[in-house]
């Protein structure tokens, strides 16, 4: 499942729903990203997506992750629109037979989502708004998965 939503994300509810009725899945890993207040510098985060395109691009990577880590299933829910500090921005869940695959796939998907996924992010502060580009660390996080392939 890949979905964008303007509504608040309920990580607990999503985890329960995702885990239910799985008899051969030994491991479910999840990640929840929250909007940071940056000590008052960020009043709200605003995320824009290109509906249809954004889900399709995330889908390509999710299919890769499924094959690479042997996932049974995944769920990716991403907020768009204005998000208050402390509110969940993204929820990722991965299900696998064993924990290593679930952890790694979740980590891999987050590295992609944080650096390359088709979102445009604006930080609203007390003195106005600014568009945010990915941090160099976000790209570096993603390249570590490429290095692993060439090992």
């Amino acid at each position: 499942m890949i979905r964008l939503t303007f509504d608040p994300i309920d990580p607990g509810g999503l985890l329960n729903e995702f885990s239910r009725g799985r008899l051969e899945v030994g491991a479910v890993a999840t990640f929840t990203g929250l909007a940071r207040a940056e000590a008052g510098a960020t009043v709200a985060l605003e995320l824009e997506a290109y509906p249809g395109f954004t889900e399709a691009e995330i889908g390509k990577i999710a299919v890769q992750a499924k094959a690479r880590f042997g996932l049974e299933d995944f769920a990716i829910l991403h907020r768009v629109g204005k998000i208050a500090p402390g509110d969940p921005v993204v929820f990722v869940a991965t299900a696998a037979r064993h924990r290593r695959a679930a952890f790694e796939a979740c980590d891999f998907l987050m590295d992609y989502l944080k650096s390359k996924a088709p979102f445009w992010k604006k930080e609203h502060g007390p003195n106005g708004a600014r568009w945010v580009e990915p941090r160099p660390e976000d790209h570096a996080d993603l390249t570590r998965w490429d290095k692993e392939i060439s090992k």
Binding site: A117, W120, K121, E133, P134
Partner: peptide
Amino acid sequence: IAFLPPMSGG
């Protein structure tokens, strides 16, 4: 036709 500036990630 969509014009997409550099993507920031989520």
